[in-house]
């Protein structure tokens, strides 16, 4: 895709988001449809870029397999309701294969796991949140911060809360009639325990198992020459 076209697309997408934000202030009762539209627009550039890449069969299957692994990773932990390693798997995929792949793995995992658990208006929000976990992890993958075990743990801890905070935005719509600070605070306080559990399990998995996962995934990447630098960001 030509550079100007791509820039135009990004500008259009951001312009659309800004317009939607203004529209929400004007017509509050449209919060739900507009927020869904907004999340869709935010994710659009990622999917367009994915479509524009000529991928080998191996690379396509790798993305699909990683998404499936992330989606089923809840199964061994079914006995522990607040523990799920989906975010951990997405972070690992992003650290090895890059930001764009990380985004796709996260969002595909969200779609796929919701196909089992039931789709709802929350699906796009989850796609966005997990996608963003992957994207940011991929962006930071060559920094010294993510190379250290403590850095990764801090990253997982932060995203454990951030994920919950983004998802709270969708549950906030129950209050859009008069969104006040007490209502806002009560929603965020109610989710604190769940966010903490998410953050702590991220830290647990990242400190103990990130080394092994980086090895396993890195080995496959090297052996099959997948998504090498220059081909994918």
């Amino acid at each position: 895709m030509s550079e100007s076209l791509r820039k135009g697309l990004y500008v259009l997408s951001f312009g659309g988001i800004a317009a939607l934000l203004v529209l929400v202030l004007w017509r509050r009762e449209l919060y739900l449809p507009l927020s869904l539209l907004m999340i869709g627009l935010v994710m659009l550039p990622f999917f367009i870029r994915f479509e524009r890449r000529r991928l080998r069969a191996e690379e396509l299957l790798l993305v699909a397999m990683l998404g499936a692994i992330a989606a089923v990773s809840r199964v061994p932990f079914a006995a522990l309701p607040s523990v799920q390693p989906v975010s951990f798997v997405v972070i690992m995929a992003a650290l090895v294969f890059g930001a764009e792949t990380g985004f796709l793995v996260g969002s595909i995992a969200a779609v796929a796991s919701n196909l089992m658990l039931g789709q709802g208006p929350w699906t796009p929000w989850q796609m966005f949140s997990w996608g963003m976990i992957g994207f940011t992890a991929g962006l930071l993958r060559h920094t010294r911060f993510m190379a250290s075990r403590w850095g990764r743990a801090a990253f997982g801890f932060g995203w454990g809360f951030l994920f919950g905070w983004i998802m709270n935005l969708w549950s906030l719509l129950g209050f859009y009639d008069r969104l006040s600070w007490p209502a806002f605070a009560s929603v965020y306080a109610a989710s604190f325990y769940f966010d903490l559990a998410h953050a702590l399990s991220n830290v647990f998995f990242l400190t103990l198992f990130s080394g092994i996962w980086l090895n396993i995934l890195g080995r496959v990447k090297q052996k099959y020459g997948l998504l090498e630098n220059g081909r994918a960001g």
């Binding site: 069969a57 396509l60 790798l62 699909a64 061994p76 932990f77 092994i212 496959v220």
Partner: peptide, 29 residues
């Protein structure tokens, strides 16, 4: 302990499935 064992399950799964999907890709092509 359960969380550790759960991760062991995942390691086995990844080692089993990831390379196999590469074979499926070769077969697809």
């Amino acid at each position: 302990l359960l969380m550790r064992e759960g991760m062991e399950t995942m390691h086995t799964l990844v080692a089993w499935s990831l390379e196999e999907s590469m074979q499926s890709a070769a077969s697809m092509r």
